[in-house]
Amino acid sequence: MADETHFVTDLYQGTAGYYERYRLPYPAPLLSRLVADSRVSGGGRLLDLACGTGQLAFPLSPHFAEVWAVDQEPDMIETVRAKANAAGMKALRPVVSSAETLDAQPGSFELAVIGNAFHRLDRELVARRMLGWLGPGGHLALCWSSSPWTGTEDWQRSLADVLNRWQRQLNDEERIPAGLDQARRHLPDPDVLAEAGFEVVGRSAFTAEHSWTLEELAGHIRSTSFLPPAVLGDQAAAFDADLAATLHPLSADGLFTETVSSAYDLARKPD
């Protein structure tokens, strides 16, 4: 069954600076386990697809001879390019392209990763393309981490209420396609990979505590596709004031602590 939900393009336009500064890095234990589980050789090529500003490409790069960092947003790739140039990373190749139209040769990659983005793609098409891009025995990891408004702490519930209220107020609810959760329940990501021809290896999960300031939460929200700067517009100051008024009473020290969940689903291309 083909995916029935589709995100419009350019949802992250203008968010790269916030994305780079306020998105949490993937935890070191997750990255170490992923390198071990995918049995990388140290001399292969990595594909970070829908890479954002390189939250997976950069920390995984020491384990590869070459890295492709691919995103359809030019601002994201410009940030990746600037970071790579500043670090003297000549083996990192920034590419502006959607996942669905990327031009890559069969068997090009030893490991492919997608961070917090597979649900935004044409999953079945991209899974088939990834299978072809990987060499025999190569791995695909679907990585994700939780968002601060999805937890059960009082401040997280209040934050979710603020975000929902402002999405309605700014008529912005259509940026998230209707039926997205239903489509993923009907055909979970591991099933998509299995139908494409992957051997599903399994999931590795991790947790870690993180404390946010109000400024960091506001910046993180501006890195999202549903309330980026382009949507907040001239209401940004009013949003910040509402956020502060709602959350300040819920913290004695100005910090908002959550247990962040992160994980990856690993799949393997048969030999």
Rank of each mutant, 00 (worst) to 15 (best):
E4H: 13
T5A: 14
L11K: 10
Y12D: 11
Q13H: 10
Y18F: 13
Y18Q: 08
Y18N: 13
Y18K: 05
Y19Q: 15
P27G: 06
P27E: 15
P27L: 07
A28L: 07
S32G: 14
A36I: 13
A36D: 11
D37L: 15
S38Q: 06
V40C: 02
G42Y: 04
L47P: 03
L47Y: 12
T53H: 06
L56P: 14
H63P: 02
F64V: 01
F64T: 04
E66C: 11
V67S: 00
V70C: 02
Q72T: 09
E73K: 12
M76F: 14
M76P: 07
T79H: 14
R81N: 06
A82T: 12
A82P: 00
K83Y: 03
N85W: 05
A86T: 02
G88K: 03
M89Y: 01
L92F: 00
P94A: 09
V96H: 08
S97M: 02
S98K: 02
T101E: 12
D103R: 10
D103H: 08
D103Y: 09
Q105H: 13
G107E: 04
S108K: 00
F109M: 14
F109N: 01
E110C: 03
A117P: 03
L121I: 04
D122P: 06
D122G: 03
R123Q: 14
R123I: 03
E124K: 04
E124F: 11
L125S: 00
R128F: 04
M130F: 10
L134F: 10
G135L: 13
P136E: 11
G138M: 06
A141M: 06
S145A: 14
S147G: 04
W149L: 01
W155I: 08
L159W: 09
V162D: 06
R165C: 02
W166M: 09
Q167D: 04
N171T: 09
I176W: 07
A178F: 12
G179I: 04
R184D: 12
R185Y: 05
R185T: 14
P188M: 13
L193S: 09
L193Q: 00
V200W: 07
R203V: 10
S204K: 08
E209Y: 12
E209W: 04
E215L: 07
H220Y: 15
S225K: 01
L227P: 05
P229N: 14
A237S: 10
F239I: 05
A241H: 04
D242M: 04
D242T: 06
D242F: 00
L243Y: 11
A244V: 08
A245N: 02
L247A: 06
L250C: 14
S251R: 15
A252I: 00
G254M: 05
A263L: 09
Y264H: 07
D265H: 15
D265F: 10
A267F: 13
R268W: 06
D271E: 12
